[in-house]
């Protein structure tokens, strides 16, 4: 089965196309990692067209969509999630959401990515790749995390330990989605698809005013 994989949880957007079958390593046919900063919405659909063209397949050949649900900066994160939801809906495909950190690196590790506001997103994994703890958001100085660290090397100094550079990959997203992709209920319509809810980890910035000042004194 061909799977389209998307992620916009970090400043590098990812679109990938892979062949997936149960119990096997995904075979990545095409992948584009675009350093798009805050331009995910502009560049994601062109990147999807790009990987389809690179692999020489049509969207009609794709059997499922996998998307990273973050954690990541909210505005960019939503672009990938809504894109995955809309493509899956328009083509009548199942869509699987996974924690984006699960798709960074492999084996025993602590994944760290930039959460802005001087904080990082983190999750820890056991040797077999299963998530042991997280995802969470924390200031590096306050984090009680142990390495080896992978993800955003910019945090090495503040963590006091090396961070080997790694980003979200197509293979990583498919590995993280494997249990769901292997579930026949995803395809036979017996279970309604779970809505894709981003891993925000933070409440919206909005403090209700405690009292209204008279308009003329402001």
């Amino acid at each position: 089965m061909l799977v389209l994989a998307l992620d916009t949880a970090t400043p590098t957007l990812l679109a990938g196309l892979a062949r997936w079958s149960p119990g096997r390593e995904p075979e990545v046919l095409a992948e584009r990692a675009v350093p798009s900063g805050t331009r995910h919405a502009e560049l994601l659909t062109p990147a999807i067209r790009g990987v389809l063209a690179d692999a020489g397949v049509a969207l009609a050949d794709v059997g499922a969509v996998v998307t990273g649900l973050g954690p990541g900066p909210f505005t960019g994160l939503r672009v990938g999630v809504v894109t995955a939801a809309a493509i899956a809906d328009a083509r009548g495909l199942p869509v699987v959401g996974v924690c984006s950190l699960d798709a960074v690196g492999s084996g025993a590790r602590t994944v760290v990515t930039d959460a802005r506001r001087k904080e990082l997103y983190w999750a820890t994994y056991t040797a077999d790749g299963a998530r042991a703890d997280g995802p969470g958001v924390v200031r590096p100085e306050a984090a009680e995390l142990t390495g080896p660290f992978v993800g955003d090397p910019a945090f090495a100094e503040r963590l006091g330990a090396p961070v080997s550079a790694a980003e979200v990959t197509t293979a990583g997203l498919l590995r993280a989605a494997a249990p769901q992709l292997a579930d026949p209920a995803l395809f036979d319509g017996s279970a309604p698809p779970a809505p894709l809810v981003p891993l925000y980890l933070r409440r919206p910035d909005a403090t209700p005013p405690t009292s209204f000042k008279p308009v003329t004194t402001t």
């Binding site: 659909t45 067209r49 969207l59 809504v82 894109t83 493509i87 328009a90």
Partner: peptide, 20 residues
């Protein structure tokens, strides 16, 4: 609002792509 606009924009681009 930028963040709000981007949800609709990304959805519309995806539907247009998927529906060709």
């Amino acid at each position: 609002l930028t963040g709000a606009l981007l949800v609709g924009l990304a959805a519309a681009k995806a539907y247009a792509l998927a529906l060709d």
